[in-house]
């Protein structure tokens, strides 16, 4: 089987990879590119652990083919922090103890980034519905939602 050559941008850097046509973007990221921050919890689009941004749109990378990355700009959890400067969402997840095992955390942070890019001032209900595609089995979402709301306030410049 011949592989497809894909030219794309991952976390702001030009990237190329070879993948099989049926390989998902999640498998490409994890097994070909070597970015294992995106997790597989279900491979069926139901848990959100594999969340990435494709040209700014929130996508389950397990439901996307690697070849679909051609010409796109991909952001993964590895691209959320700027160097050693954590993104406010990451900072607030830490401060609010919004993670226990941390397996859902990359997906939740990427999904939150997509939410706040689109809606900088969400209500709690809006945040809960936006994140309804991200399963977390450990936290009961309470601290997650608090972290998201607090991060939103920081990003709006209302608090630190």
């Amino acid at each position: 089987m011949s592989k497809s050559h894909v030219t794309t941008t991952i976390n702001g850097e030009a990237a190329e990879f070879l993948c099989e046509t049926q390989q998902t973007m999640l498998d490409v990221l994890r097994d070909v590119v070597g970015l294992t921050g995106s997790k597989e919890g279900c491979a069926s689009g139901d848990c959100g652990a594999c969340s990435i941004l494709v040209d700014g749109t929130l996508v389950c990378s397990c439901l996307m083919l690697g070849v679909e990355a051609e010409g796109k700009s991909i952001t993964t959890i590895e691209g959320i922090a700027q160097g050693d400067q954590l993104h406010p969402i990451q900072q607030k997840f830490l401060e609010h103890a919004a993670l226990q095992c941390g397996f859902c955390t990359p997906g939740l942070i990427v999904a939150t980034k997509a939410l706040l890019d689109e809606n900088p001032n969400p209500t709690e209900i809006e945040a809960r519905y936006w994140l309804a595609g991200n399963l977390c089995r450990c936290t009961g979402y309470d601290k997650v939602i608090r972290a998201v709301m607090d991060a939103a306030a920081v990003m709006r410049g209302e608090t630190v």
């Binding site: 830490l94 401060e95 993670l99 955390t105």
Partner: peptide, 21 residues
């Protein structure tokens, strides 16, 4: 008290190494 956990940064940046990683 409520300090930030020592393995926290690894887990919010996707660097923590889970079983399948």
């Amino acid at each position: 008290t409520r300090p930030v956990r020592p393995d926290g940064v690894d887990k919010v940046t996707g660097r923590a190494v889970f079983s399948a990683d």
